[in-house]
Design a protein around this nucleic acid. Structure first.
Lengths: 310, 310
DNA sequence: TGGATTCGTGCACAATATCTGCATGATCGA
DNA sequence: TCGATCATGCAGATATTGTGCACGAATCCA
């Protein structure tokens, strides 16, 4: 309902470049450029100025973007209240999540909605947590299941999103089968401080999680190799290249050659899995219902996992 | 910046019919109809239902319209703050007012702006007070000078507009030249309670003003004839058909046959002339500047009138 | 330093959305 | 029952908006 051009400006403010905005929104770069030009013309304001080979926001542009968060949240709230007023639901619901979430949480939700709300056309997208938030802003999806870093979201995201914690997924250690610690039922992270570690590249959510886990015990582990996928990491570990951290919920196809050991300790590392929606939309019946289902499903999963192995 | 379809819905909520909405917005009726249909489709909500030969809002529609006021005000505020952030002004400014206001207040303002802000394209519209407010909502104009009834605006208009009082225009009495009271310098409204009165039709702003003036002294005067224009009323009075109330600022071409007498008394009747803008837009530099000019101009006019005849 | 890359923008053309004018059916008032 | 008013749908015209490509500018890398 907010003008498309203003939405584009917001996304541009997040990305910083026209090209990235185009990719995120699905427009071509020239369309984004034209939209921003047209926005400035119709408002009679200069919003962008050249900066090197790119463009950056002027004071007026920044002011506009800052206030736009409130505007969008107000609209979401209004839309939600209108749905409530007649107990109607929208015809489409887009949901995004990272791999594990997509498999364990969103798939059951989609199945549930297909039964309970057959009129709603559900669309699933698998994407990395950071990308999910961008898709949320761009309104490509309406609900995202992401890994929250300990620090939480970026500060300015508080005005864009609302979150619900779904579950705290504990991190296990995977070590080669012939590792001295492989037989243990539990161990402490401190015991592994001297190991060679395998984790994701700098800047990723998993790396941030990894760093935070060791920061909590005052250690700075040695990172020997990088892997993006759990399967890859598992293979590396199996080859004796090092050890790694693996979320409890991540199930591996083949565990040959590796051994999963639980971490003990007062505050053993976990990854917090949260559902995020655009601020204001949480009041919408369909969103509320979906979030409740996700919380129940998360609780169910936790119960199953506890039963599986204490 | 708010979607055109939602704006149309708001205006429809004011008018009640598609046809009136079309007239006010400048669209054709089928365009309005199509916009509302499209709005419902894109929101996945039913907003209208058939009612006789017209349509009326559903609960969801009413909820949407109610909240839209806040949304629009937030946008106006945001736009104004963005203008302030770079000290820029829009390229166009529409202003509306009823006849006297258009002549005495808006014309000097337009002249002032042509000198001070040559880049701004100024547009003047003469329209009745009620219509001015509709034009304000429809964004055909950005500033309106209207007569405020004692009761103020309608209650739900408070969320749509902000007002500034420009001046209190006292009401004089015009009587036939040969009337017993014609020579008096001042007189009290009570002395005229038994006269035959000439005023505008039921439902008009002037009629409301008239009624309020007599209600204040607990009288219900006898209305003998109706006239829309001051000139018409003056002619009626000159023909001996009755007496009438005439605002001080209303200057008549010919005053032959009639005599203007001032009203005395603690709270002699006045019409309050106010400037109204869309809520939120008062922070915009150009609007603020215009309002200040209008207040000064109003004060100047009052001084001149006071000098003319104490 | 020079070539490759990335970025934003403009233009011609295509696709889409939107408006108008008219015809139609429904409803209301006289 | 007739005329007026109202909303809506459709066909065609119009305006808006998007795409693909080319270009110039700025940056990066070797």
């Amino acid at each position: 309902m907010i003008d498309q051009r203003l939405k584009t400006l917001r996304i541009f403010a997040n990305c910083g470049t026209v090209a990235a905005t185009a990719e995120l929104t699905g427009y071509s770069p020239s369309a984004v450029s034209a939209q921003l030009r047209e926005l400035q013309r119709s408002l009679g304001m200069q919003l962008l100025s050249k900066e090197g080979r790119g463009v950056r926001l002027t004071a007026a542009g920044r002011q506009l973007v800052r206030g736009a968060d409130t505007l969008v949240a107000d609209w979401e709230l209004l839309r939600a209240s209108a749905f409530n007023a007649d107990d109607q639901v929208p015809g489409h619901l887009g949901m995004g999540g990272f791999s594990t979430a997509a498999a364990h949480l969103l798939a059951p939700l989609a199945q549930h909605l297909r039964v309970e709300r057959p009129a709603v056309e559900v669309e699933l997208v698998e994407a990395h947590p950071e990308h999910c938030l961008n898709l949320l802003v761009a309104e490509r999806i309406d609900l995202a299941v992401i890994v929250s870093t300990q620090a939480g979201l970026r500060s300015d995201d508080d005005s864009k999103f609302e979150q619900v914690t779904l579950l705290n997924d504990p991190l296990d250690v995977i070590v080669p089968k012939d590792h001295p610690l492989a037989g243990r039922s539990h161990l402490h992270l401190e015991e592994l401080a001297g190991e060679q570690w395998i984790t994701d590249a700098e800047g990723s959510v998993y790396r941030a999680l990894f760093t935070a886990a060791f920061a909590a015990i005052g250690q700075m582990p040695r990172i020997a190799h990088q892997a993006k996928e759990w399967e890859t990491m598992s293979a590396f570990v199996g080859a004796g290249l090092g050890v790694g951290l693996l979320p409890r919920l991540a199930v591996l196809n083949g565990l040959e050659g590796v051994s999963r050991v639980r971490l003990a300790g007062a505050n053993h590392p976990t990854r917090r899995i949260v559902a995020a929606v655009r601020r204001g939309s949480m009041e919408a019946p369909l969103i509320r219902e979906s979030l409740e289902f996700l919380q129940e499903e998360a609780a169910r999963i936790l119960r199953v996992r506890l039963a599986e192995g204490g």
